[in-house]
Design a protein around this nucleic acid. Structure first.
Lengths: 149, 149
DNA sequence: TCTGCATCTTCCCATCGTGGGAAGGTAAAG
DNA sequence: CTTTACCTTCCCACGATGGGAAGATGCAGA
């Protein structure tokens, strides 16, 4: 199976398949005499696993852990559950952070008449806060979205 | 005012101040004879504006628009409101996407006994979906977090 | 004045996951 | 045999941020 077919079957782009190979997330693919990568059904299986984990927002490093457990037939399901639960926590925290941003901005929008006049509470408050208490929001915006350092 | 002091006063790191200058988000700072950048209180004002907009999750390109309106004394508040509302929509959509991921993963976790046994519905479903309907989740994970291309 | 330290300057590199594209080789169909 | 569709590797870009090196400058104390 060519990389393009593996891509179609798994929903992972060819660029990403090569990238995952390069960073060692997946083992080096077999090569044909031509140099073309050759994928087996079980390789595609693994790519599907990866794609679904990505769809759930797992980082590649976390998927690496999950793949290890996936391959380890003597794994403890508790280990998987721990990773999953921790990930749920992070997802929810990021969602909360986004909602807080939206709510804050909503407050400003509610105060803006939104017409032809130049007077605008949104800009005014960004300039010099009077409506909004920024103390709870400080963690620098997408900082709550970026992985913490 | 040195860049370090402007940084402290505004809460924007020196690295970021130079970066914002480099990409043209803020005008080139005045220089002293020494070559040191020199910031006025109104520069710091602008940096504060930027930081707060970042705290609200605005992308730098959006902040560019907001700064334009901020400086345009004849702006229409409706323009600002439109940008803000669109941003709220995006924030909420990303939050929803994250919550959907968390909920999906929660379903899997709820089915996992989480003990010493190797049997694990989480991995099983990543491998070969049986519990989860992935159709609503497909927009590739953080794709919902990343800016759409 | 000299010394040391803090701060500034520019420049390059890394992150993370993804896409774009060029230059060149191969497979398969017409 | 020609065309086309695919494959290969390699480099570059994004967005926003941080790290660090090498060298210049500012300021305070001896």
């Amino acid at each position: 199976m060519n990389i393009g077919q593996a891509s179609q079957a798994s929903g992972v782009s060819t660029k990403m398949i090569r990238y995952y190979e390069q960073i060692g997330l997946i083992p080096k693919a077999d090569r044909r005499d031509s140099g073309y990568r050759d994928y087996s059904p079980s390789d595609v299986h693994m790519l599907c696993f990866i794609r679904r984990a990505r769809d759930l927002g797992f980082a590649v490093s976390e998927i690496n852990d999950l793949l290890g457990l996936w391959r380890d037939k003597s794994r403890h399901s508790a280990d998987v559950m721990r990773i999953a639960k921790a990930h749920i926590e992070r997802l929810q925290e990021r969602a909360r952070s986004l909602e807080a941003m939206a709510a804050t901005l909503g407050t400003l929008v509610a105060c803006c008449h939104g017409d032809d006049r130049p007077d605008c509470p949104i800009l005014a408050d960004l300039e010099e806060p009077s409506l909004i208490d920024w103390s709870g929001l400080k963690p620098s915006s997408e900082g709550a979205l970026r992985r913490q350092p």
